[in-house]
Amino acid sequence: MFGFLLGEALRDLRRAGRVAVSAIVLITLSLAALGAFWLLSSNLAEAVVQFRERVKIVVYLKREPSSGESRALVERVRALPGVAVVRYVGKAEALGTLKQVLGKDAAVADALPQNPLPASLEITPTAEGATLEGARALVMRLGALPETDEVGGGVEWMEQFAHGRRLLWLFGLGVGAVLAAAAILTVTTATTLVLHARRDEMEIMRLVGAPEHVVRLPLLLQGMMQGLLGAMLAIWLLVGCYAILGPRVEPLVRETLGLARLTFLRPHNVAFLMLAGTLLGGVGGILARGRAEP
C-alpha cells in the first residue's frame, strides 16, 4: 500500500511541474543558506575554543620578588578561582625571551644599561575563567594583589569574536527562515495545484470508501518528497562549494583564525538539514490540504 501511495505522490509531483521545481529550488536555497552559515559558524566556534585554550593573562609585578616570595606568590595566585596554571617569569627570563624574539637584532637588548622588563606571572585561566565574566572577575582579583603593577592580556577580544559568531549564526538563521517561509508557500501552492488536478481521484477515493489517510497521504508525501529532494540538492551544493572553495580559503583561515583546515558539516548537521527539508515540504503539503479541502 505504501508503495502505491508513494507512486501516487510521484505522479502528483510530475503534475505540479514547474511549480514543484520552484518549490524544490527554494527549499534548496534556504537549506543551503542555513547550511553555509552553520558551516561558518561551527568553524568559528572551533576557533573560539582553540583561542580559549591558548588565552593567557599576564600580571606584571611592581618589583622582582625573591625566590621564596615568588613561590609563595605563585601558590596564592594558584588558589584564586578561575586560575588553572600559574608560571613565574623572572626579569632575566623575560629578557631572554625578548632576545629570542628579536633574533639577529638581540644585540639591541644587550646594549641596554639595565634590564627594563618586569617580573611577571603568566596565568592560564580555567574554562570558566576564560569566559568574559570569569576573566573580568579574575583580572579584578589579580589587580587587587599588592604585588601587582599591571594586568595585561585578557579575553575581551575573544568574546567579541564569539559574539560575532553568534550574530552570524542568527543572521544565517534569519536568512534561512525567510527562505524557508518562501519555500513553504511555494510547496503549498504546488500542492494546491496538485489538489485541483487530483480532485477527481480524491472524489473517487472518497466515494468508494478509501480510508482518509489513503486519500490524504499522497499529498503529504508529495510535499515531503519536494522537501527531501531540496535538502539533498542543498547538501550537494554545499559539498560542491566546500570542495571547490575550501582549499582556496584555508590559507586565509589558517592565518586569521588559526584553524588548520575548514571542517565540513558533521553527519548530524547533514541529517538535521535533510529532516528540516522533509518537514518544510510536509508543512507545505499540510497547509495546502487545509487551504483547499473542506
Binding site: D200, E201, E203, I204, R206, L207, V208, G209, A210, E212
Partner: peptide, 17 residues
Amino acid sequence: AALRRSIGIVFQDAKLL
C-alpha cells in the same frame, strides 16, 4: 468510508479518471 466500501456507485457521467 466503511459503509461506502459495501456500495458500488455508478453515475450518468461515468467519472472515469
